[in-house]
Design a protein around this nucleic acid. Structure first.
Lengths: 211, 211
DNA sequence: AATTCTTTGTGAAAATATTTTCAAAAAATT
DNA sequence: AATTTTTTGAAAATATTTTCACAAAGAATT
């Protein structure tokens, strides 16, 4: 709740901007125009300028935006100065992949604890992440003061696990199950539904022309 | 391009409706109201009715919607009568997880071919899917007349692989890499960016109140 | 120093999407 | 058979998001 509320559509594009600015920075570029950005990330340049303008005048007319300046700004906005620890609940199929996924390469986010019921995996360390028995979910989340959880459990137990998560201080859940979770208002859920993504893509292919 | 163009926001909700209708059907329910649906999938009931109304009058006042009727309708709309074969390019970390992911349980979609450079995996069959060397990408996609590809290769080679995919009859790419691909207009790209999802969730947690 | 070129920031318009409202149709109840 | 309840479908109102288009600011060039 720091600065004034920006449109949700804008908020969803911030990580995109952040990543591309990092690429520019690493490539030694010092300035960039909204048109160059537009080309690279495939968002209309007017949309980009409008997005940036919610945070004030960040650019210079006739020049563009200073990469390092912008980068520092978005780093702060996206809270990328501090490390965010997240928990992974369900180390199956998808969970494993996320354990190995290098969130930390593009962001200051890492999975710091995982939970499962599978006895072969619990109390081992996979890709540097300790895997705890699900029985310790509530206590560990509380002890480690984790505020974000990734849910990759079977759909059948998703709501039950979400209920447990809700007993802790968690404020956000990234839900990979196909269930639409019921959680208290203080918890924000974002859904990533892979089957939906494919079905939607196929629908658009069949019913819309390009773009 | 069969029926009139519906809003993109509506199109994205169709798979959601479809899945929940299947659940109702399997549970033996024969009728459902927009309010019941709203509760289950957490979309406002007016939005649901509006969405449905783009396809004509599907419900009955005072009664609601006939589950089997609606289901048959969406099955057709979403082309779930026929099987869609998709290709998976890149059998690493995430690719493996998607190979094992049961798209087929919720939809009439299956991965029918996978591609990789890793010599241990090529020419084997993983989870029922043959893994071909990437050199065969273009010919196999053409021979098998595959129209959708999932991209789970390292970002570094994403554009290069996309270029190859673009040489085939593929019409849609589900892009899991962090690169925004350049492809011809006839190909539709949907991006699933896991780091972005987490960053956005964290941004919303920090800057917005509930809902 | 003057002129030309580039590019932002933003009002205004257009396009999209959601929510409210309510008449009317049908079902359920009395 | 009449009344009440439920629930859709459509219109209108509202909200959000994108796009257009251009003045103004500053950079680059002459």
């Amino acid at each position: 709740m720091t600065e004034t509320k920006i449109p949700r559509a804008t908020a969803k594009r911030l990580p995109l901007y952040y990543r591309y600015l990092n690429i520019l920075h690493d490539g030694g570029k010092t300035r960039v125009s909204s048109n160059e950005l537009a080309d690279a990330i495939r968002v209309d340049s007017a949309t980009i300028r409008r997005d940036f303008s919610y945070f004030g005048a960040l650019g210079k007319r006739g020049y563009g935006y200073d990469v390092d300046n912008l980068l520092a700004f978005f780093k702060d906005i996206l809270d990328q100065d501090r490390l965010t620890n997240v928990a992974l609940v369900g180390v199956g199929n998808l969970g494993h992949a996320l354990l190995n996924f290098s969130f930390h390469q593009d962001s200051n986010i890492r999975i710091s604890a995982a939970f499962d019921i599978n006895s072969q995996e619990i109390n081992t360390v996979q890709s540097g992440v300790p895997i705890y028995p699900i029985e310790q979910l509530v206590t560990q989340l509380q002890d480690q003061q984790i505020t974000v959880a990734i849910l990759t459990v079977p759909s059948r137990v998703a709501q039950e696990v979400a209920n447990q998560v809700a007993e802790t201080g968690v404020k956000g859940i990234l839900n990979f199950t196909s269930i639409r979770l019921s959680v208290p208002d203080r918890i924000r859920v974002h859904n990533v539904d892979l089957t939906n993504e494919l079905q939607t893509l196929i629908y658009f292919i069949d019913h819309y022309d390009q773009k």
